[in-house]
Nucleic acid binder design. Structure first.
Length: 287
DNA sequence: CGCGTGCTTTAACCGCCTGG
DNA sequence: CCAGGCGGTTAAAGCACGCG
């Protein structure tokens, strides 16, 4: 799959592309493409940014990302390599006539529903099995298993990834700017970041940058940055061997604990320690 | 140690404006 | 019409303190 500055070109001449990534690091550049993307994290921990939202992922996480939605997977670096299976599907590639077939109603539904993208919350093991099979099939078999996959995903419980569809079209130049900004946040969120720094990074003045960022994300830069930091803190809090709240706050980029508590409560409606307790509880009762 | 809160300081960002 | 600069406003950050 060739990588363009901001878009990924249509790969080869097929409608359903299955890609398996095993690497220390996922492709960590903001990008978008017309294909709908179904991604299973087999192994790995990190964060997924979709448009203006941040989502933590861990082993077994499963996401469906709508077409033409900017996104980026970033995994935390460990000694073990991360593993992801992705299915790309070009909606137009299925053909309007084929989709009219009454028996393919479920596929139509899926294509309709996944515009905003969602995280799959249930039936993930069964869906994972189907995706694993998809890595080993060809041609018609791939298509059949794809249908099975759609069916399973349709009946699972889901959680929307983004609140509203991306509003404005993004030019290549602007996309490149956004790439730089998101990349910077991904790598420097644990230390102090000022508007001046990021604005300078993309050669803009601070107010110009603020408007640019808001126009494309419907969020202020700091709203996004804080969301990212909180998402990171959540992952640290969910760990069995978590460090102290103060340490987590600091490594998530918060200079003062009081501010961290305030921001955490505001976004999660529970205090950090409560959140950690609840996560532990649900992990124990999941299996 | 973890959390909330009121007060002060700081800087993010919004509206208004100009020039291209 | 759009991008960018300027300055004032306001929300975020930081600090101190108190409470369980």
């Amino acid at each position: 799959m060739r990588v363009l500055p901001f878009k990924i070109s249509k790969p080869i001449n097929s409608t359903i592309i299955v890609q398996e990534d095993k690497a220390l690091k996922f492709y960590d550049q903001l990008h978008q493409h017309e294909e709908i993307q179904i991604s299973l994290i087999v192994r790995g921990q990190g964060k997924l940014v979709v448009a203006n939202t941040v989502h933590g992922f861990t082993d077994g996480s499963l996401f469906v990302i709508g077409g033409n939605t900017p996104h980026i997977f970033q995994n935390d670096l460990t000694s073990e390599s991360a593993h992801m299976i992705t299915v790309f599907v070009t909606p137009g590639g299925l053909g309007q006539d084929l989709l009219k077939v009454p028996e393919l109603k479920e596929v139509r539904m899926f294509l309709e529903n996944c515009r905003k993208g969602f995280e799959v919350q249930t039936d993930r093991e069964s869906i994972a099995k189907t995706m694993l099979k998809l890595t080993k099939t060809k041609q018609l078999d791939t298509f059949l298993h794809f249908l099975k996959l759609i069916q399973k995903i349709n009946s699972a419980r889901k959680l929307d990834l983004i609140a509203q569809l991306p509003s404005k079209k993004i030019s290549n130049k602007e996309g490149r700017r956004l790439q730089l900004v998101f990349e910077y946040v991904l790598h420097h969120f644990s230390r102090e970041i000022t508007l001046e720094q990021v604005a300078g990074l993309v050669h803009m003045t601070t107010p110009a940058f603020c408007r640019f960022f808001k126009r494309h994300t419907n969020k202020t830069f700091f709203e996004f940055l804080i969301a990212f930091r909180i998402a990171h803190a959540c992952q640290l809090l969910a760990r069995e061997d978590r460090s102290s709240i103060a340490e987590i706050a600091e490594s998530s980029g918060f200079n003062s604990i009081s501010n961290f508590n305030r921001k955490f409560k505001k976004t999660k409606s529970v205090s950090p320690s409560q959140y950690a307790r609840e996560m532990r509880f649900s992990q124990v009762h999941q299996i």
